[in-house]
Design a protein around this nucleic acid. Structure first.
Length: 302
DNA sequence: GGAATAACCTGGATGC
DNA sequence: TGCATCCAGGTTATTC
């Protein structure tokens, strides 16, 4: 499931291939890949064809490809979200269709020549969209790979992620102090902190020895600092290992899987011994999904 | 206004 | 073997 490390691996893989590349053709094979696009598939194809991409940018789990301006004051780009199973793949020009391929961009790069940027998505929760870029509320850089202080309108409500140099720790602590919800729910709230999904929430809470159902406001300042430190450590480690791949759902732009699944301590390890204390890892239902934790290491505070 | 929940979706795993 | 059901989960609209 693409969370921050997986999306960052994709962004870093895309960046050299799309920066400076011109979109020669756009083919939408499935309109469901454009659920966030305000117009039709034909509109998306027409807008993007002939445009030149500047970079590959990311905030949290959102990606965007800013386009070179063709008019004064114009600031636009293509927003991408991988959802549950989306993939952005780099393929040779004219390569056969990928399984679950939804959109294909045929691009021409001044150095790398002709390439295909393929958006494939099994469960169709991901999407692409044309969007305007607007100034960031804090006037800092938009996100990873994008030094300009702009973000797509669809991303402006998304908080900065913990690896962003402009991440405001004080604001994060204040937000937790106001939340009566379970800390895990807050970690998954992309308007509070972005980039964390179910896997890394479970792993970070285990590392910080915090029960997932602890009310956010009940965490001490020290506990919040420890949690943030563990979130960053988990994300950095996952990034170094190429992300988490359980099956073919997540791969990098070359179709290769990551290795972090081998480093998971609690996620998906129901009934297995906690690596820290040996107590069996438990799984509980949590708002349409699952939480995995060690009931001995992660005591619930009230 | 904040919090909780359902819906969207596909394919693999499981049970009968 | 074949069919039905369950499960995975990011985001957002809806409901409370």
């Amino acid at each position: 499931m693409p969370e921050l490390p997986e999306v960052e691996v994709v962004r870093a893989g895309l960046a050299p291939a799309v920066s400076g590349a011109r979109v020669a053709a756009v083919t939408v094979l499935d309109d469901r890949a454009l659920t966030r696009h305000p117009g039709t598939a034909a509109d998306f194809e027409a807008r993007l064809t002939g445009r030149t991409m500047q970079a590959a940018a990311r905030r949290g789990k959102f990606l965007w490809l800013p386009l070179l301006a063709e008019a004064p004051e114009e600031s636009v780009g293509v927003v991408a979200h991988l959802g549950m199973s989306g993939q952005l793949l780099l393929r040779p020009a004219g390569s056969p269709p990928e399984r679950h391929e939804r959109v294909r961009l045929d691009v021409q790069h001044p150095e790398h020549g002709e390439l295909a940027v393929v958006f494939a998505d099994q469960r169709t929760f991901g999407s692409l969209a044309w969007d305007a870029l607007v100034p960031t509320p804090d006037a800092a850089a938009g996100g990873a790979g994008w030094p300009a202080a702009t973000v797509p309108t669809q991303v402006v409500h998304i908080a900065r992620d913990p690896l962003d140099p402009a991440f405001a720790e004080a604001d994060f602590r204040k937000a937790l102090g106001r939340k009566g919800s379970a800390i895990k729910r807050v970690l998954l709230d992309q308007t509070v902190v972005s980039g964390i999904g179910n896997i890394y929430a479970d792993e970070s809470l285990w590392a910080a020895r915090i029960h997932p159902e602890t009310p956010a406001f009940a965490l001490t300042t020290r506990a919040v600092q420890r949690l943030l430190s563990e979130v960053r450590a988990v994300l950095h480690k996952a990034l170094a290992e190429g992300g988490t791949s359980f099956d073919a759902q997540y791969v990098n732009v070359n179709g290769q899987a990551g290795y972090f699944a081998h480093s998971l301590n609690v996620y998906g390890r129901t009934g297995q011994a906690c690596p820290r204390c040996g107590h069996p890892v438990v799984r509980v239902s949590f708002t349409n999904r699952s939480s995995h934790f060690c009931a001995r290491c992660q005591r619930r505070a009230s």
